[in-house]
Computed example of a mutant assay.
Amino acid sequence: MILITGATGTVGRQVLDRLPADLDVRALTRTPPRVVTTHHRTEVVQGDYGDRASLDRALRGVRSAFLVTTRVAGDDDARFLAAARAAGVQHIVKLSAAAVQDPQADDLITSWQRANERLVRSSGMAWTLLRPRSFMSNTLSWAPAIRSDGVVRALYGSSANACVDPRDVADAAVQALTGTGHHSRSYTLTGPEPVTAIQQTRLLARALGVALRFEELSADEAVAAWTRRHPEPVAAALLHSARRQLEGAKAAVDPTLVTVTGQPARSFATWSIDHAAAFSAGSPSARSE
């Protein structure tokens, strides 16, 4: 049995659909009706990291687990790992972040991810760490402004990021969960080339067949936008991360993904074409992939 946490999220739902059809899979989520998957041997269970009894139920009989946590500075990883160890889980595949390798990245989010990695490595279970660069799907947040105004607004439009397609991260997760040779390994996952927000705007315009313009946000404007969605400490961490990107810290391309999955990393141009409908007029609100 394989357990997938974050089963309705950016990567978790992609992992569900990509797991071999002959495997028994369990999906842990707070909202079972939101789990939609093509994997027909998936058991959906309701649970929460703060509810130990629900974790015990979800982990019963599980051999490997895909662990995703999003509550920055929270203790969800510690809670899950304690329950997994007690349940006899053998292997944890943890979704982390590429920034943990950057010694200059000391923001709240990255520090939290480093602490989570230490917990996984010291858990007593076998582990694999997935460290993706920023997701290409983060650009879905631009969809409302593209549909209404034909404009992309972002901070530091000329700074480059070797962003990765979440589908590629999911493919790597499936390999780690089902294959051999992945224990005690850490994988940095990037796209095939660094791209800037200005370049992404051009590629989206080409995929949509419309004219788009890019408008640079000031740091204050970006922080104000982030603060509407996140607590202030998280917004501050995002600004620190953006400044690290401006300094070139996120532009490096890593070849690990093709080694793990056997397939070349998808480009942002490909991602744009495949997701053009999310940016088109009449599309429902963008959903994170």
Rank of each mutant, 00 (worst) to 15 (best):
M1D: 14
I2Y: 04
L3K: 00
G6N: 01
A7K: 01
G9I: 02
G12E: 06
R13T: 14
R18M: 13
L19A: 01
P20G: 05
D22E: 14
V25H: 10
A27Y: 04
L28W: 06
H39T: 13
G47S: 09
D48M: 08
G50E: 11
L59C: 08
R60M: 10
G61R: 02
R71C: 04
A82Q: 13
A83K: 02
V89K: 03
I92A: 08
V93C: 04
S96A: 11
S96D: 06
D102N: 14
I109Q: 07
L119R: 14
T128Y: 06
T128I: 02
P132N: 04
G150Q: 09
L155E: 07
A173M: 03
R185I: 10
E193F: 10
P194Q: 10
T196P: 00
E216C: 05
E216N: 07
S218D: 01
S218L: 03
E221T: 07
V223A: 13
A224D: 12
A225W: 08
T227N: 11
P231R: 02
A242Y: 00
R243E: 15
Q245K: 09
Q245S: 14
A251D: 14
P255Q: 03
P255R: 00
P264S: 13
P264I: 12
P264Y: 11
A265W: 04
S267A: 05
W271T: 09
W271H: 05
I273G: 05
D274V: 03
G282D: 12
